[in-house]
Amino acid sequence: MSEEEAEESVFHKKLKVKLKEKGREGRIIFLKEYLDFILRSNLNLPPDFPTFCREVMGLDERNGFIHIRIWNERNEVVEFVKSMNYEYRIDHYD
């Protein structure tokens, strides 16, 4: 087991992602790119994809960022934002 795995934690966190465009259009682009990432990476569709879409479309936008709830950093959404060069940061839930 790697050190990274050994130190894995399951705490509530926020993935803060800056959308490429503001408003509804930016979210649609984000979701389209996420789906594209899943299909091109040959991954199974996340079971919560419909919920995730609703969540992303309904999230508040704070200075161009949306705050997505995650439970650890080795997460498919995090892998996606990294690979698509989104500006992001991960904060503990407050």
Partner: peptide
Amino acid sequence: PDWRRVEAIIKA
């Protein structure tokens, strides 16, 4: 019943 949390548990 929360996939992202379950994903985190499996990885941990």
